[in-house]
Write a protein that binds this DNA or RNA. Structure first.
Lengths: 327, 327
DNA sequence: CTGAAAGCGCTTACAG
DNA sequence: CTGAAAGCGCTTACAG
């Protein structure tokens, strides 16, 4: 392994000069710079990041803390984070927290020992004070930890209004809203949006809380459909729930979209694979991840960030679980 | 930050002794050990892994190189890797390669500079010699790099035989096999299995190569179904392709499973969400990841590993795209 | 069984 | 503009 010492010797300067040149810190004469450049080139020298970290107490590792990469929402997020991290020379450490504050804390602690540069955190159970005091740059997704920590999320409320209106415009007269877990911020925002839109109409509706879980959603919807044959529209707070609803419609013998229209939320790839294809309010998950990462890197590099709250717009994707708009 | 020096001072011994004790290397008297234990406890000392790495040229980072975490096959794999890595005190760095050998090399090089402990590699375009010479522990998934590098994969051929037989036993008389990309080892193994099973029967069949891509598969199957109305069974080499086939069956007006039966391969969660639920040859992806990680850690820790090839059994999951067995 | 010392490969005041 | 030197927090021969 060739070290900074080798470079210094070859260039005929001191290691301090080489270091200064490499880090673009302090003055280096043109000749010295030239000599170092040549030496680096010839020796194919590459700086040892570990040795650097030990001094600077910084690394180029970014921790991505999420509940479970297995949840279809997260892979794309992770992908975005990694893509932009790579662009800026950072590497990402994957941390599945299972929403367990202990696991989160553990990760934060172990990674801080490695001088992690910062964290992107997606979680709903997160131990807010712990993060607030972590003393390391953080960006939160979908949940505000405090005013000082930048947050990026979808405009969930807007999206829910769009989704509700989609059903309304298509003639639904009795809408079932599948509300997500009440401790999830985004789920609550979606609920708010639904309520706002539905109450502006004079359409009947009912709300049931339902986990973001396929089989559970299916069961719940099956029951409700049996009790309420009049339901002709379902707005699910997630695509997975919507998939459960669609399956339930099948077993209940309700034709989709003729007798029952369904709208999901998320925009996960699976939606297109269903039959009929799932109409959904699609989040731009990739963009969320990308924005979060850029903001984090700005914080890491002590650059000013314009705002502390970033909202990524959501988009209605019309597929086969809804009919055409009623004029 | 409390350092080993602080501990040494408090315990009244030298840093060398503390280090020896902490690493369980070399002799340490019972008294010294006792004193160090107390000091560590009182100071809440935690070893600095970066400083250690600089000396030992080792870290507890594991690199997970995969084509794209967004592909539904990989999140579960990543999850497994992270779970067992955590158990053994390792942390995982996520690397999306897009099957690009350059990106792979880059990751290997940058992570080696960080003294990465080892790699788990899933890729099909991988630059075999580069890996073979990487001079760092590696475990490969689904592809043999060379005899010295341990490999774990599903028993794809067996699985394909099972899948084919499932269709045969259920009375299919004309089977379409959706073969995967020819440069993918697992896809070829599945093809082999199909051929072996189908040729033992006297059933008609045809094979078409088809990417592991939903919309493409749908299109291809739509065409073929039109040309060959006699096809009454489809065995797809992946669940995504199977989903495409199922969709195609819908647009072609073929009832599944009455007129057309479909079997997929992979066992991805999405399969259960389709209507009807997808019958499939399920891989135990989590197990593959777990096995790979354990083997890697053994290699890292210079423990003997029993074998260089691990095959994880596959399992037939019967759902709604197939009928009951013909007696 | 133990400690002084060198070394891992860098960065950073400091003096010049 | 530059270099000698101390230091980041550990590990590891080596001598005792």
């Amino acid at each position: 392994m060739t070290t900074i010492k080798d470079v210094a010797k070859k260039a005929g300067v001191s290691v301090a000069t080489v270091s200064r040149f490499l880090n673009n810190s302090g003055y280096v004469s043109t000749e010295a710079a030239q000599a170092v450049t040549v030496a680096v080139e010839e020796l194919k020298y590459e700086l040892n990041p570990i040795a650097r970290s030990l001094n600077t107490k910084k690394s180029n590792l970014i921790g991505l803390i999420l509940p479970d990469i297995t949840n279809p929402f997260f892979p794309e997020l992770a992908r975005a984070v990694e893509d932009v991290a790579l662009t800026y020379g950072y590497t990402v450490v994957l941390c599945n927290s299972d929403e367990d504050p202990e696991k989160e804390k553990n990760y934060i602690e172990t990674l801080k020992k490695k001088y992690i540069a910062g964290f992107i955190v997606t979680s709903n159970q997160l131990d807010a004070p712990h993060y607030a005091n972590a003393n390391v740059p953080i960006v939160a997704l979908d949940r505000t930890i405090n005013e000082k920590i930048p947050t990026v999320s979808s405009n969930n409320k807007e999206g829910a209004i769009m989704g509700t209106n989609a059903l309304l415009e298509r003639g639904c007269k009795h809408i079932l809203f599948l509300r997500g877990p009440e401790k999830l911020n985004p789920a609550n925002d979606r609920y708010e949006g639904f309520m706002e839109a539905i109450q502006r109409s004079n359409v009947r509706y009912q709300v049931v809380t339902c986990p973001f879980h396929f089989a559970d959603s299916q069961k719940i919807v099956e029951c409700i459909l049996q009790e309420n044959p009049l339901i002709d529209g379902i707005f699910a707070s997630s695509d997975v729930s919507a998939a459960g609803a669609l399956k339930a419609a099948g077993t209940a013998g309700k034709h989709v979209p003729d007798e029952l229209q369904i709208v999901g939320f998320d925009g996960v790839a699976m939606g297109a694979m269903l039959s009929p294809g799932l109409t959904t309010v699609a989040q731009d998950v990739y963009k969320m991840g990308a924005v979060a990462t850029r903001v984090l890197i700005k914080r890491i590099e002590n650059k000013k960030i314009e705002q502390n709250f970033y909202e990524v717009p959501v988009k209605l994707v019309i597929r086969g679980t809804t009919r055409s708009v009623v004029e």
